[in-house]
């Protein structure tokens, strides 16, 4: 029917927007890494390398030449699914991403899941009860967590759990599933604390708004049972802003977890990106940013869609 049409149109429109954003991310990453100071050849040869040697290497790496032609050949390669190889060690960019991205995604997914498990009960309960002392304590505590830099929380965690008690390894990683949790649990915990502070605050304020709505009172007067009431009259009408924010944050966390990856010596994609930027490794930087762009846009698209399906008041 007409209604179905409208939804499909909205979805298609939003999807086209996602693709165009991805395109611009690609263009920007191409330009920015070249505008930034630094030269891959001198980076690879190290300080004190001879000028002549650097020139030779530059030639080998096809670094000279018209940037426009370079761009088109890059796009052409991309269309054929080729992200290129690292200028530093010749490893395929795809392989680098395949090695490092899962670690970061594990970190993000686990901490998102934990943050939801923590935030939904806390945010809803405090928002619904609206009790002055609780709200005050909640605001204060989350403000402290938000104001503290995550590396500081991470250091405290390491000092306590790794140095003092030896409950968590300080570095290293194991790629197979349950074993990796051993290395991940502390960074996940730190990330969860910060993520929960944001999410539970947003949920808290949505729930406290929902609570006073007329339709909620209608539900009470209709005598709706507890479980139904909790979902249809409290959580579902309050969830949309949280979902939108969360999906957006999950995207930005791809780059932002670099600090945690560094502190915990996790070989994630954030660290890989920083290393590539420092050595002006154009293909690696471009490849990683393109992944980030596409993932971020897709995530926020999915977030918007879920929010819309939950609550038709949301503009998609």
């Amino acid at each position: 029917m007409q209604k179905g049409n409208q939804l499909t149109r909205k979805i298609i429109g939003r999807f086209l927007r996602a693709i165009s954003v991805a395109f611009w991310v690609m263009v920007l990453s191409f330009v920015m890494i070249r505008v930034a100071p630094g030269d891959p050849a001198s980076a690879r040869l190290g300080p004190g390398a001879e000028k002549a040697a650097i020139e030779v290497l530059r030639k080998q790496l096809h670094l000279g030449g018209n940037p426009i032609t370079q761009f088109f050949s890059y796009v052409n390669e991309l269309i054929h699914g080729n992200l290129g190889v690292s200028l530093q060690d010749g490893v395929k960019v795809v392989d680098i991403i395949n090695r490092t991205l899962p670690i970061t995604i594990y970190l993000i997914l686990l901490s998102t899941l934990c943050a939801l498990i923590v935030s939904i009960p806390i945010g809803t309960y405090i928002g619904w009860s609206g009790k002055g002392s609780l709200v005050y304590g909640f605001r204060g505590l989350t403000a402290i967590f938000l104001a503290t830099p995550n590396f500081f929380i991470a250091m405290v965690g390491i000092l306590f759990f790794s140095v003092r008690h030896n409950w968590a390894p300080v570095f290293g990683y194991d790629n197979s599933f349950p074993q990796n949790l051993h290395y991940l649990w502390l960074p996940v915990a730190v990330n969860t604390i910060i993520l929960s502070s944001v999410i539970s605050r947003v949920l808290f304020s949505s729930v406290s708004e929902t609570k006073d709505e007329e339709f909620v009172e209608t539900g009470i007067i209709r005598g709706v049972g507890r479980r139904r009431f909790f979902w249809f009259y409290i959580l579902k009408p309050s969830l949309a802003p949280t979902v939108v924010l969360l999906s957006y944050m999950m995207g930005t966390m791809l780059g932002a977890t670099v600090i945690l990856e560094t502190v915990f010596s996790l070989p994630g994609i954030g660290r890989e990106l920083v290393g590539a930027v420092l050595t002006s490794d154009y293909p690696v930087v471009q490849g990683i940013l393109l992944y980030f762009g596409v993932i971020t846009v897709l995530l926020s698209f999915i977030g918007d869609l879920i929010a819309y399906l939950l609550d038709r008041r949301v503009k998609i």
């Binding site: 007329e214 339709f215 209608t218 539900g219 249809f232 009408p237 939950l310 609550d311 038709r312």
Partner: peptide
């Protein structure tokens, strides 16, 4: 009273 806001939007 505000039946306009009475139905549940979700």
């Amino acid at each position: 009273q505000s039946a306009l806001a009475g139905p549940n939007p979700v």
